[in-house]
């Protein structure tokens, strides 16, 4: 009896699920401060040197790596399903999977590169 083809779905779901928790816990406060309060001037922005020092801390790099990577894969999985189900693009499922998960992998590579060079 030959072994059946293994599905990638559990791995994708794991990344989607953990990424969903990271997005829910951490993204609102990120966009609140760096997308609204600091740029609008309602709260004084910490400035270049302070932000650079914060990002260069090893724990901050680890946190940003986990946050961005998992959120990229969470978004990729949900975007694929949204375009497939909500926009009725099931016939393009393979192309969508390639674009979404490929985009998440490219995002992960850029994340690692930027966190190592910043």
């Amino acid at each position: 009896m030959s072994a059946g083809k293994r599905s990638n779905e559990p791995l994708v779901w794991l990344l989607f699920g953990v990424g969903g928790f990271f997005a829910a816990f951490f993204l609102p406060v990120h966009v609140l401060f760096y997308g609204l309060l600091f740029p609008s001037g309602l709260v004084h922005a910490p400035g270049y040197q302070a932000t650079l020092a914060l990002v260069r801390h090893p724990l901050a790099r680890l946190y940003l790596f986990a946050l961005l990577t998992l959120c990229f894969f969470h978004a990729a999985h949900r975007m694929r399903l949204t375009m497939s189900d909500v926009l009725n693009l099931r016939h393009l499922n393979t192309v969508l999977a390639f674009l979404c998960y490929g985009g998440a992998i490219v995002g992960t590579v850029f994340t690692v590169w930027l966190l190592m060079t910043v």
């Binding site: 993204l27 978004a75 949900r78 850029f110």
Partner: peptide, 17 residues
């Protein structure tokens, strides 16, 4: 489900930052 597009947008924005 559409929130995923904004998750991707903000991740890319953070990379630009």
């Amino acid at each position: 489900e559409a929130s995923s597009f904004f998750v991707a947008y903000f991740c890319v924005l953070t990379l630009v930052q």
